[in-house]
Amino acid sequence: NITAAIYDEIQQEMKRAKVSQALFAKVAANKSQGWLCELLRWKENPSPENRTLWENLCTIRRFLNLPQHERDVIY
C-alpha cells in the first residue's frame, strides 16, 4: 500500500545512504534524476488516476522494502 509517507521515505533513504537523486532514481526505478524530481513534486497533489505514477511508486516501495544492507550493496 502506497501512502504519502513514501515521499519522506525516499528523502530519508537518500540522506541515510548519502546518495544523489540521480543515483537513487537509477537503482530504485531505473529512471533519471529529472524523473525523480518530477515524481517528488507529485507529493503535493498525487493523482489517483495516474497509473504510471502509482506503478513507479510501487517499484520504489519494493526497493525500499529490501533490507538496508542489500540496498547499500546495490548503491
Rank of each mutant, 00 (worst) to 15 (best):
N1H: 00
M14E: 06
T59I: 10
C37A: 04
I74Y: 00
N50P: 03
R41V: 09
I74T: 11
C58I: 10
R51K: 13
L64Q: 03
P67G: 07
C58N: 11
S20I: 03
L36E: 01
R51L: 12
G34D: 09
L36W: 01
N30F: 06
V19L: 11
E55S: 10
P46A: 07
I2V: 01
A29M: 06
P67V: 10
Q68R: 11
W35K: 10
V27S: 08
E38A: 11
S47C: 01
E55G: 05
L23S: 11
R62C: 15
H69K: 15
T59A: 06
L40V: 09
L66P: 01
L53R: 11
A22R: 08
L53S: 12
A29D: 15
E38Y: 11
A5F: 15
E55K: 01
H69I: 15
A29G: 10
F24T: 01
S20F: 06
Q68S: 13
L39N: 05
L36M: 15
E49Q: 08
K26Y: 08
S47L: 10
F24V: 02
E38H: 09
E55T: 12
N30E: 14
R16L: 08
N56W: 05
H69E: 08
R41D: 15
S20G: 13
R16V: 09
L23R: 14
V19F: 01
W42A: 10
A4R: 14
T3A: 01
N65D: 15
Y7H: 04
A17W: 06
W42V: 07
C58E: 10
R16Y: 04
L23F: 06
I10H: 01
H69F: 14
I2M: 15
A22K: 09
R62K: 09
C37E: 09
S47V: 13
T59G: 06
N50I: 05
R61I: 08
V73N: 03
A4F: 11
Q11A: 13
N1E: 11
R62D: 12
L53D: 13
T3W: 08
L66G: 09
A5P: 13
P67W: 02
R16K: 15
R16N: 04
E9V: 06
D8I: 15
F24I: 04
I60H: 00
I2E: 00
H69N: 02
S47G: 12
V19A: 12
H69T: 06
R62F: 11
K18Q: 13
F24P: 00
L64R: 00
D72F: 04
Q21D: 02
N65V: 12
Y75G: 00
S32A: 08
T3C: 02
W42Y: 03
D8K: 08
R51E: 11
L64I: 13
A29C: 01
E38N: 07
N45C: 02
E49H: 01
P46W: 11
Q12L: 08
L66A: 07
R41F: 13
A4S: 15
R51Y: 06
Q11F: 09
S32W: 09
A28S: 10
E55D: 12
N45M: 05
R71F: 00
G34A: 08
N65T: 12
P48G: 10
W35F: 03
K26H: 08
L40W: 06
D8A: 14
I74H: 02
R71T: 01
G34H: 10
D8M: 14
L39S: 09
R51I: 09
L64V: 03
Q12S: 08
I2D: 01
A22F: 03
K18Y: 14
A4T: 09
W54G: 13
K18W: 10
Q33K: 12
N56T: 09
N45P: 09
T3Q: 06
K26M: 09
R61A: 13
L66F: 12
Q33A: 04
N1M: 15
E49P: 03
